[in-house]
Amino acid sequence: MSGFDSNPFVQSVDVNPFQDASIAEATSGGLETRDEFNPFSGDGLGSSKTIPISAALSQPAVLQASVETNPKSVAAAGAASLAKQQEELEKKAAELQRKELDLQNLAAGRGLPLSERVNNWPPVPRICPIKPCFYQDFEEDIPEQYRKICIRMYYLWVFHCVTLFLNVWACLASFITDSGNGVDFGLSILWFFLFSPVAFICWYRPVYKAFRSDSSFSFFFFFFVFFFQVAVYIIQTVGIPNWGNSGWISSISMIRVSVAVAVVMMVVAGFFTVNAVLAVILLKMVHSKYRNTGASFTKAQTEFSQEVMANRSVQSATASAATSAAQGMFQRN
Protein backbone atom coordinates (compact mmCIF):
# COMPACT_ATOMS: atom_id res chain seq x y z
CA MET A 1 0.00 0.00 0.00
CA SER A 2 3.05 2.19 0.23
CA GLY A 3 2.99 2.57 -3.55
CA PHE A 4 -0.44 4.02 -3.45
CA ASP A 5 0.46 6.33 -0.51
CA SER A 6 3.23 8.03 -2.41
CA ASN A 7 2.54 11.48 -3.71
CA PRO A 8 2.81 11.67 -7.46
CA PHE A 9 3.27 15.33 -7.40
CA VAL A 10 6.42 15.14 -5.30
CA GLN A 11 9.50 15.88 -7.36
CA SER A 12 11.19 12.62 -8.20
CA VAL A 13 14.83 12.00 -7.62
CA ASP A 14 16.95 11.87 -10.77
CA VAL A 15 18.17 8.35 -11.37
CA ASN A 16 21.34 7.82 -13.41
CA PRO A 17 21.13 4.52 -15.23
CA PHE A 18 24.93 4.36 -15.67
CA GLN A 19 25.36 4.28 -11.93
CA ASP A 20 24.08 0.74 -11.84
CA ALA A 21 26.66 -1.65 -10.39
CA SER A 22 26.58 -4.16 -13.24
CA ILE A 23 26.97 -1.48 -15.90
CA ALA A 24 29.79 0.19 -14.04
CA GLU A 25 31.60 -3.12 -13.74
CA ALA A 26 31.25 -3.77 -17.46
CA THR A 27 32.49 -0.34 -18.46
CA SER A 28 35.36 -0.24 -16.00
CA GLY A 29 37.10 -3.32 -17.55
CA GLY A 30 38.90 -1.33 -20.30
CA LEU A 31 39.88 -2.34 -23.75
CA GLU A 32 40.97 -5.82 -22.74
CA THR A 33 37.49 -6.73 -21.52
CA ARG A 34 35.86 -5.30 -24.61
CA ASP A 35 38.19 -7.27 -26.86
CA GLU A 36 37.27 -10.53 -25.17
CA PHE A 37 33.58 -9.85 -25.60
CA ASN A 38 32.03 -12.29 -28.15
CA PRO A 39 28.39 -11.60 -28.83
CA PHE A 40 28.02 -15.07 -30.41
CA SER A 41 29.36 -17.02 -27.48
CA GLY A 42 27.00 -19.04 -25.37
CA ASP A 43 28.93 -18.65 -22.09
CA GLY A 44 28.24 -15.02 -21.45
CA LEU A 45 30.22 -11.85 -21.76
CA GLY A 46 33.61 -13.08 -20.65
CA SER A 47 33.89 -16.16 -22.86
CA SER A 48 36.86 -16.37 -25.24
CA LYS A 49 35.59 -19.35 -27.31
CA THR A 50 34.45 -18.75 -30.90
CA ILE A 51 32.33 -20.85 -33.19
CA PRO A 52 33.68 -21.43 -36.73
CA ILE A 53 31.58 -20.12 -39.56
CA SER A 54 31.66 -23.51 -41.32
CA ALA A 55 30.10 -25.04 -38.23
CA ALA A 56 27.52 -22.34 -37.90
CA LEU A 57 26.46 -22.50 -41.53
CA SER A 58 25.93 -26.05 -42.84
CA GLN A 59 24.95 -25.05 -46.41
CA PRO A 60 26.35 -21.63 -47.31
CA ALA A 61 24.58 -19.81 -50.04
CA VAL A 62 26.60 -19.54 -53.25
CA LEU A 63 25.78 -16.94 -55.80
CA GLN A 64 26.58 -18.09 -59.37
CA ALA A 65 27.63 -15.44 -61.73
CA SER A 66 25.38 -15.19 -64.71
CA VAL A 67 27.07 -16.12 -68.05
CA GLU A 68 25.97 -14.10 -70.97
CA THR A 69 25.83 -16.05 -74.28
CA ASN A 70 27.89 -14.50 -77.00
CA PRO A 71 26.71 -15.26 -80.58
CA LYS A 72 30.28 -15.32 -81.83
CA SER A 73 31.35 -17.88 -79.23
CA VAL A 74 28.32 -20.06 -80.02
CA ALA A 75 29.10 -19.91 -83.74
CA ALA A 76 32.75 -20.76 -83.11
CA ALA A 77 31.80 -23.76 -80.96
CA GLY A 78 29.37 -24.99 -83.63
CA ALA A 79 32.00 -24.64 -86.34
CA ALA A 80 34.52 -26.57 -84.25
CA SER A 81 31.99 -29.34 -83.65
CA LEU A 82 31.17 -29.56 -87.36
CA ALA A 83 34.86 -29.65 -88.24
CA LYS A 84 35.42 -32.50 -85.78
CA GLN A 85 32.48 -34.47 -87.17
CA GLN A 86 33.72 -33.86 -90.73
CA GLU A 87 37.16 -35.15 -89.77
CA GLU A 88 35.66 -38.30 -88.22
CA LEU A 89 33.54 -38.92 -91.31
CA GLU A 90 36.57 -38.52 -93.57
CA LYS A 91 38.50 -41.03 -91.47
CA LYS A 92 35.64 -43.53 -91.67
CA ALA A 93 35.32 -43.03 -95.43
CA ALA A 94 39.05 -43.59 -95.88
CA GLU A 95 38.89 -46.74 -93.79
CA LEU A 96 35.93 -48.08 -95.78
CA GLN A 97 37.73 -47.32 -99.04
CA ARG A 98 40.81 -49.12 -97.80
CA LYS A 99 38.75 -52.19 -96.83
CA GLU A 100 37.04 -52.17 -100.22
CA LEU A 101 40.40 -52.08 -101.98
CA ASP A 102 41.62 -54.94 -99.81
CA LEU A 103 38.56 -57.01 -100.76
CA GLN A 104 39.08 -56.23 -104.43
CA ASN A 105 42.72 -57.20 -104.17
CA LEU A 106 41.78 -60.43 -102.44
CA ALA A 107 39.16 -61.23 -105.07
CA ALA A 108 41.54 -60.32 -107.88
CA GLY A 109 44.28 -62.62 -106.68
CA ARG A 110 47.98 -61.99 -106.14
CA GLY A 111 47.25 -58.65 -104.55
CA LEU A 112 46.31 -56.99 -107.84
CA PRO A 113 43.15 -54.92 -108.39
CA LEU A 114 40.51 -56.16 -110.79
CA SER A 115 41.49 -53.67 -113.46
CA GLU A 116 45.12 -54.91 -113.48
CA ARG A 117 44.47 -58.65 -113.54
CA VAL A 118 46.30 -60.46 -116.31
CA ASN A 119 44.78 -63.59 -117.81
CA ASN A 120 46.97 -66.62 -117.25
CA TRP A 121 44.98 -69.49 -118.79
CA PRO A 122 45.56 -71.26 -121.07
CA PRO A 123 49.32 -71.04 -120.40
CA VAL A 124 50.60 -70.34 -123.89
CA PRO A 125 54.07 -69.11 -124.84
CA ARG A 126 54.56 -65.37 -125.29
CA ILE A 127 55.50 -65.80 -128.93
CA CYS A 128 52.12 -67.38 -129.61
CA PRO A 129 49.67 -64.95 -131.25
CA ILE A 130 46.82 -66.38 -129.16
CA LYS A 131 46.80 -64.84 -125.69
CA PRO A 132 45.31 -66.31 -122.49
CA CYS A 133 41.57 -65.78 -122.20
CA PHE A 134 40.87 -66.51 -118.51
CA TYR A 135 42.33 -65.91 -115.10
CA GLN A 136 42.69 -68.94 -112.84
CA ASP A 137 44.36 -69.26 -109.47
CA PHE A 138 43.04 -71.82 -107.00
CA GLU A 139 45.15 -70.59 -104.10
CA GLU A 140 43.90 -67.02 -104.29
CA ASP A 141 40.38 -67.31 -105.71
CA ILE A 142 38.93 -70.46 -104.17
CA PRO A 143 38.37 -70.80 -100.39
CA GLU A 144 40.19 -73.64 -98.71
CA GLN A 145 37.06 -75.71 -98.00
CA TYR A 146 36.13 -75.73 -101.73
CA ARG A 147 39.59 -75.86 -103.26
CA LYS A 148 39.92 -79.63 -103.56
CA ILE A 149 36.56 -80.19 -105.23
CA CYS A 150 37.25 -77.32 -107.64
CA ILE A 151 40.64 -78.78 -108.58
CA ARG A 152 39.01 -82.15 -109.12
CA MET A 153 36.49 -80.58 -111.48
CA TYR A 154 39.38 -79.09 -113.41
CA TYR A 155 41.07 -82.49 -113.64
CA LEU A 156 37.79 -83.98 -114.84
CA TRP A 157 37.70 -81.45 -117.65
CA VAL A 158 41.32 -82.31 -118.57
CA PHE A 159 40.47 -86.03 -118.55
CA HIS A 160 37.40 -85.20 -120.68
CA CYS A 161 39.62 -83.54 -123.31
CA VAL A 162 42.12 -86.41 -123.26
CA THR A 163 39.30 -88.92 -123.78
CA LEU A 164 37.93 -86.99 -126.75
CA PHE A 165 41.42 -86.78 -128.23
CA LEU A 166 41.92 -90.55 -127.87
CA ASN A 167 38.47 -91.08 -129.34
CA VAL A 168 39.63 -89.31 -132.53
CA TRP A 169 42.55 -91.74 -132.88
CA ALA A 170 40.37 -94.76 -132.17
CA CYS A 171 37.83 -93.65 -134.76
CA LEU A 172 40.68 -93.03 -137.19
CA ALA A 173 41.92 -96.60 -136.66
CA SER A 174 38.38 -97.87 -137.16
CA PHE A 175 38.06 -95.84 -140.35
CA ILE A 176 41.36 -97.17 -141.68
CA THR A 177 40.25 -100.73 -140.96
CA ASP A 178 36.71 -100.30 -142.28
CA SER A 179 36.02 -97.46 -144.71
CA GLY A 180 32.36 -97.57 -143.72
CA ASN A 181 33.22 -95.90 -140.40
CA GLY A 182 34.08 -92.57 -141.93
CA VAL A 183 31.09 -90.89 -140.26
CA ASP A 184 32.41 -91.84 -136.82
CA PHE A 185 35.81 -90.38 -137.64
CA GLY A 186 34.36 -87.10 -138.92
CA LEU A 187 32.05 -86.71 -135.91
CA SER A 188 34.86 -87.56 -133.48
CA ILE A 189 36.86 -84.62 -134.81
CA LEU A 190 33.82 -82.39 -134.45
CA TRP A 191 33.18 -83.57 -130.87
CA PHE A 192 36.79 -82.91 -129.89
CA PHE A 193 36.91 -79.34 -131.20
CA LEU A 194 33.38 -78.57 -130.02
CA PHE A 195 32.96 -80.28 -126.63
CA SER A 196 36.40 -79.39 -125.24
CA PRO A 197 35.92 -75.59 -125.13
CA VAL A 198 32.17 -75.85 -124.58
CA ALA A 199 32.70 -78.02 -121.50
CA PHE A 200 35.26 -75.56 -120.13
CA ILE A 201 32.98 -72.56 -120.61
CA CYS A 202 29.61 -74.12 -119.82
CA TRP A 203 30.26 -76.23 -116.72
CA TYR A 204 33.83 -75.84 -115.46
CA ARG A 205 33.99 -72.04 -115.38
CA PRO A 206 30.53 -71.73 -113.77
CA VAL A 207 31.51 -74.05 -110.93
CA TYR A 208 34.79 -72.16 -110.56
CA LYS A 209 32.91 -68.86 -110.30
CA ALA A 210 30.37 -70.41 -107.95
CA PHE A 211 33.04 -71.48 -105.46
CA ARG A 212 34.97 -68.25 -105.91
CA SER A 213 32.15 -65.79 -105.23
CA ASP A 214 29.46 -68.04 -103.71
CA SER A 215 27.17 -67.29 -106.64
CA SER A 216 23.79 -69.03 -106.59
CA PHE A 217 23.22 -68.32 -110.28
CA SER A 218 26.54 -69.97 -111.21
CA PHE A 219 25.62 -73.02 -109.14
CA PHE A 220 22.26 -73.43 -110.85
CA PHE A 221 23.77 -72.90 -114.29
CA PHE A 222 26.41 -75.55 -113.55
CA PHE A 223 23.84 -78.09 -112.36
CA PHE A 224 21.68 -77.50 -115.43
CA VAL A 225 24.54 -77.96 -117.92
CA PHE A 226 26.42 -80.68 -116.08
CA PHE A 227 23.31 -82.87 -115.92
CA PHE A 228 23.32 -82.97 -119.73
CA GLN A 229 27.07 -83.60 -119.68
CA VAL A 230 26.51 -86.74 -117.58
CA ALA A 231 23.89 -87.89 -120.12
CA VAL A 232 26.40 -87.32 -122.95
CA TYR A 233 29.02 -89.35 -121.07
CA ILE A 234 26.57 -92.24 -120.79
CA ILE A 235 25.80 -92.07 -124.53
CA GLN A 236 29.50 -92.00 -125.36
CA THR A 237 30.12 -94.95 -123.06
CA VAL A 238 27.40 -96.96 -124.80
CA GLY A 239 28.97 -96.21 -128.18
CA ILE A 240 26.09 -96.12 -130.63
CA PRO A 241 27.45 -96.73 -134.18
CA ASN A 242 27.76 -93.72 -136.50
CA TRP A 243 27.58 -91.30 -133.54
CA GLY A 244 31.32 -90.60 -133.49
CA ASN A 245 32.06 -92.42 -130.23
CA SER A 246 34.25 -95.45 -129.56
CA GLY A 247 31.93 -96.91 -126.94
CA TRP A 248 31.34 -100.48 -125.91
CA ILE A 249 28.92 -101.36 -128.72
CA SER A 250 31.22 -99.97 -131.43
CA SER A 251 34.31 -101.63 -129.96
CA ILE A 252 32.65 -105.02 -129.55
CA SER A 253 31.34 -104.91 -133.12
CA MET A 254 34.91 -104.21 -134.32
CA ILE A 255 36.22 -107.51 -132.96
CA ARG A 256 35.13 -109.40 -136.07
CA VAL A 257 37.06 -106.93 -138.26
CA SER A 258 40.23 -106.27 -136.26
CA VAL A 259 41.01 -107.36 -132.72
CA ALA A 260 43.75 -104.75 -132.30
CA VAL A 261 41.48 -101.89 -133.30
CA ALA A 262 38.76 -103.33 -131.09
CA VAL A 263 41.16 -103.29 -128.11
CA VAL A 264 42.05 -99.67 -128.76
CA MET A 265 38.37 -98.76 -128.97
CA MET A 266 37.69 -100.67 -125.74
CA VAL A 267 40.35 -98.62 -123.99
CA VAL A 268 38.60 -95.45 -125.14
CA ALA A 269 35.26 -96.93 -124.05
CA GLY A 270 36.80 -97.48 -120.62
CA PHE A 271 37.86 -93.82 -120.56
CA PHE A 272 34.29 -92.78 -121.36
CA THR A 273 33.06 -95.03 -118.54
CA VAL A 274 35.47 -93.46 -116.07
CA ASN A 275 34.29 -90.00 -117.18
CA ALA A 276 30.68 -90.94 -116.52
CA VAL A 277 31.42 -92.41 -113.08
CA LEU A 278 33.59 -89.46 -111.99
CA ALA A 279 31.00 -87.00 -113.28
CA VAL A 280 28.27 -88.58 -111.15
CA ILE A 281 30.51 -88.64 -108.05
CA LEU A 282 31.65 -85.05 -108.46
CA LEU A 283 28.11 -83.89 -109.14
CA LYS A 284 27.05 -85.29 -105.77
CA MET A 285 30.06 -83.71 -104.07
CA VAL A 286 29.37 -80.30 -105.60
CA HIS A 287 25.72 -80.58 -104.59
CA SER A 288 26.72 -81.31 -100.98
CA LYS A 289 29.02 -78.28 -100.98
CA TYR A 290 26.27 -76.22 -102.55
CA ARG A 291 23.90 -77.03 -99.70
CA ASN A 292 26.46 -75.75 -97.18
CA THR A 293 26.97 -72.42 -98.94
CA GLY A 294 23.44 -71.13 -98.28
CA ALA A 295 22.66 -70.61 -101.97
CA SER A 296 19.04 -70.69 -103.10
CA PHE A 297 16.92 -70.26 -106.17
CA THR A 298 15.71 -66.86 -104.96
CA LYS A 299 19.30 -65.62 -104.72
CA ALA A 300 19.97 -67.00 -108.20
CA GLN A 301 17.03 -65.03 -109.61
CA THR A 302 18.22 -61.86 -107.86
CA GLU A 303 21.78 -62.26 -109.15
CA PHE A 304 20.53 -62.95 -112.66
CA SER A 305 18.32 -59.86 -112.70
CA GLN A 306 21.17 -57.70 -111.37
CA GLU A 307 23.60 -59.00 -113.98
CA VAL A 308 21.09 -58.51 -116.76
CA MET A 309 20.27 -54.97 -115.72
CA ALA A 310 23.96 -54.15 -115.31
CA ASN A 311 24.71 -55.29 -118.85
CA ARG A 312 25.22 -52.32 -121.17
CA SER A 313 23.76 -54.11 -124.17
CA VAL A 314 20.60 -54.86 -122.24
CA GLN A 315 20.42 -51.28 -121.00
CA SER A 316 20.79 -49.86 -124.50
CA ALA A 317 18.21 -52.30 -125.89
CA THR A 318 15.78 -51.42 -123.11
CA ALA A 319 16.31 -47.69 -123.66
CA SER A 320 15.77 -48.02 -127.42
CA ALA A 321 12.63 -50.10 -126.89
CA ALA A 322 11.25 -47.58 -124.42
CA THR A 323 12.03 -44.72 -126.81
CA SER A 324 10.32 -46.52 -129.69
CA ALA A 325 7.26 -47.21 -127.57
CA ALA A 326 7.05 -43.59 -126.45
CA GLN A 327 7.38 -42.33 -130.01
CA GLY A 328 4.64 -44.71 -131.15
CA MET A 329 2.30 -43.46 -128.43
CA PHE A 330 2.92 -39.84 -129.39
CA GLN A 331 2.33 -40.59 -133.06
CA ARG A 332 -0.96 -42.27 -132.28
CA ASN A 333 -2.10 -39.33 -130.23
Rank of each mutant, 00 (worst) to 15 (best):
G247F: 02
C150N: 05
D43T: 06
G78E: 07
L187W: 05
A262C: 04
H160W: 07
I23E: 06
I149M: 08
C161H: 01
E36M: 10
Q19P: 01
R34C: 07
A75Q: 14
A173F: 08
A77S: 11
S216Q: 08
S213H: 10
D214A: 08
T69G: 12
A75W: 03
N245S: 12
A24P: 00
G44V: 10
L156H: 01
F192Q: 02
N333E: 02
D35L: 09
L278M: 07
F4K: 12
F226W: 01
V10S: 12
I130M: 12
M266A: 08
I127F: 12
I51E: 10
F185W: 03
W191H: 04
V198N: 00
S2Q: 11
T323A: 13
D43A: 12
P143W: 08
C202D: 04
D178S: 13
Q236F: 08
E68Q: 14
T177N: 10
L114T: 03
D178G: 05
T293V: 14
G186C: 09
T163G: 04
A173R: 11
V230E: 01
V274W: 04
F40Y: 11
W203Q: 02
I127W: 09
I281S: 03
A79E: 08
N275G: 02
A321P: 07
L57S: 11
S196T: 00
K72R: 15
L82C: 04
L114V: 03
G294Y: 05
Q229S: 05
P197T: 01
F227P: 00
P8G: 06
P197F: 02
G328V: 11
D214I: 08
N333T: 02
E95A: 15
S218T: 14
Q145W: 06
R312W: 02
S305I: 14
N16F: 08
A300Y: 05
A210R: 06
T27S: 10
M309N: 15
P129V: 12
V168G: 03
F195M: 03
P197H: 03
N292Q: 13
F195R: 01
F223C: 04
T273R: 09
C202T: 11
D141K: 10
Q327T: 05
T318M: 13
I249P: 03
F195D: 00
L106R: 07
N38M: 05
A295Q: 10
S12C: 10
R152P: 00
M329P: 00
S288I: 15
F40K: 14
L112V: 07
S12R: 15
L31Q: 13
A325K: 15
E303A: 12
V314Y: 14
I176W: 12
R152H: 06
A76P: 10
V10L: 11
S48C: 12
S58H: 04
K289S: 08
L103R: 07
S213T: 15
I53N: 06
E25V: 06
F271E: 03
V118S: 05
A210D: 00
A321Y: 11
R291H: 05
V158R: 01
R205L: 11
C171L: 07
V268H: 05
A93Y: 06
V74C: 10
N105A: 06
L45K: 09
V257I: 11
K289C: 09
V280P: 00
T318C: 11
N292G: 06
T33M: 15
G3H: 15
G239K: 14
M266G: 03
P125T: 13
